[in-house]
Amino acid sequence: MLAFLFRRLGQGLAVVAVMATLVFVGVYALGNPIDILISPEADQLEREQAIVRLGLDRPLWVQFGLFVKSVLTGNLGISFVHGVPAIDLILSRMPATLELAFVALVISVGVGIPAGLAAGLAPRSLTGRAIMTGSILGFSVPNFWLGLMLILLFAVELQVLPAGGRGETRDLFGLQLSLLTVDGLRHLILPALTLAIYKASLIARLACAATREALVQDFVRFARAKGLSERRIVGVHVLKTIMIPVATVIGLELGSMIAFAVVTETVFAWPGMGKLLIDSIYRLDRPVIVAYLMVIVAMFVVINFIVDVIYTLLDPRVRVSGQEA
């Protein structure tokens, strides 16, 4: 187990390093950010001085070397636009994104698994067909369109929910969370729903397919022959089996929900990391873009590791060991 952990860690670090290098060079190639940052009225002298202040006068390899050096001391660079450490910017935006992703995940699992199970148990019934048809709609509707429609319906027409932004927050162990206030929850509903509908549909379809597969397997037949109640068969044995593929997908989707909720965050003016990334790309704020992607890759590595561990808990046949992982 320990060897597995170390190998995973090593692989993770290598991925982070390769990615950081690629993004650093890629954003450098996009052009000199000074043209976007500086006041259009700046004269030639001020332009030269600003370039020196931001360290953009140095050749690429020197800039990259300095970046590597500062990363090794735990500093991922200073934002060109904000003048503060990039990692601080990202961390200050993280609670908003995590909160949104968490609520969306709860909704999508809470809706997706029961719906998929129901559809899988009775695929030919009206409910089953409705769920499967609905899920096609759910994951083919574009995210931004869905968000805008929800805003139009609930915020502009019915005026029951706010159109965007984050509500009131409350401090919990130093984290600013809006989950804990009524105003915060009201602001969370629409963006979380927008994010959740696609995932819920995906999970429902997966759960449905897995259920249908599981129902014809021997262990279910044995259970039935043994006279176990239908409730126990479905609620324990089938559910546990279908959770294996579902857990993988949830893990991956949670990662993408945190990392790339960009569209939803933009539509709802949600002050999360995705919005920070998009704004940074528009302003060529290289330190923030690089640091953000480093954080995200690290997060994916961790999530995948957790998913691997969860496999072993769900299916004892899967073993995590130094040899075979």
């Binding site: 805008l148 805003i151 139009l152 915020a155 502009v156 005026q159 706010p162 159109a163 965007g164 932004g165 933009t266 539509v267 709802f268 003016a269 704004d279």
Partner: peptide, 15 residues
């Protein structure tokens, strides 16, 4: 609210 559509929606919704 940097995107134009959501900015208009925020006004119409009374945010």
């Amino acid at each position: 609210i940097t995107s134009a559509g959501p900015r208009v929606a925020a006004l119409l919704a009374g945010d």
